[in-house]
């Protein structure tokens, strides 16, 4: 029976969060779990249903961060280890360190997690944990086939439309993408008799930060400059011009729009298409 560990990262939900331009900070903050991590968890639960497995979740978060436990408890897990450390969010590499330290005391066949977190977008924790544990890692996996218990076949999207297939021997850390499975409503599984939950309160890291966040800013807004209609136009014509429906606009777009379908036009488009295809 496989012993599976899932690293689940609690995050501020990027879907709800908004940058408040006035106060220069985030508003509409709500907490959730990294969706690729929950995809990994969902995959592990599906595997457990069919083949049997022991699933342990490890979450590491800042002591001040509150998480909605129910959202994880509805999965069919056996053990949950919670690591809490003050000011963890300010120290990017520390999460991998404390997870690796915790994992070094356990023996897992496979560690599954999301390749990248939706909040910080750094993608460092999976490979760092693997390196600290001296086990191999393969990230950006979107499909897993279990050939034998100790031998898996996994697929990774290389570029757009290209898929690479790898065969991996366990133990290994696999970083998955959001597309590992189809997102679906997770019914409340029949809760196992007992979920072993362990909470470890860790001391604040003393190490000096080697990467510092200097500032956070709003994304640059997309500003589009429209042509100012000529004064000589009537109100109606000006309105049509702004809407892009006037004859004037048609003439402007005429530079890139061909109104005659001839061999020259077709050749031009097919050549452009080929060129753009080769660019990628």
């Amino acid at each position: 029976m496989l012993n599976i560990c899932i690293l689940v990262k609690p995050i501020m939900d990027p879907a709800s969060i908004k940058w408040d331009y006035q106060s220069q900070e985030f508003s509409y903050i709500s907490n959730t779990f990294n969706s690729a991590d929950t995809q990994a968890l969902q995959w592990a639960c599906d595997y457990k249903e069919k083949n049997g497995a022991k699933i342990t979740i490890i979450t590491a978060h800042d002591s001040e961060f509150t998480i909605e436990e129910k959202r994880l408890l509805k999965y069919n897990i056996d053990q949950w280890i919670v690591l809490k450390q003050p000011e963890l969010k300010n120290n990017p590499g520390e999460t991998a360190q404390i997870i690796a330290k915790e994992l070094s005391g356990h023996s897992f066949d496979v560690i599954l997690t999301g390749s990248v977190s939706e909040d910080k977008n750094s993608g460092m924790t999976p490979a760092m944990v693997a390196e600290l544990l001296f086990i191999p890692a393969l990230t950006n996996i979107h499909h897993i086939d279990v050939k034998e218990e100790g031998l898996w076949e996994v697929k990774r999207s290389e570029d757009r439309g290209t898929v690479q297939t790898y065969e991996v021997k366990l133990p290994i850390l696999i970083g998955v993408t959001n597309t590992l499975g189809r997102k679906r409503y997770i019914p409340r599984y029949r809760r196992p008799p007992k979920i072993k939950k362990e909470i470890r309160i860790l001391e604040k890291a003393n190490e000096q930060l080697n990467v510092q966040v200097m500032k956070m800013t709003e994304p640059r807004p997309n500003i589009r400059y429209f042509d100012i209609p000529k004064d000589s136009l009537s109100a109606e014509e000006r309105l049509l011009a702004i809407m892009g429906l006037s004859q004037d606009k048609k003439e402007q777009s005429g530079k890139k729009v061909a109104s005659e379908v001839n061999d020259k036009t077709i050749h031009f488009i097919s050549q452009k298409l080929q060129k753009w295809l080769q660019e990628g």
Binding site: E118, N121, Q212, M214, P219
Partner: peptide, 19 residues
């Protein structure tokens, strides 16, 4: 060096530097 990165799926930018 000051490095600009995108966070929260492009909803904010972060400027970070190396020690």
């Amino acid at each position: 060096l000051l490095v600009k990165r995108e966070i929260y799926q492009g909803k904010a930018n972060e400027f970070v530097s190396f020690a």
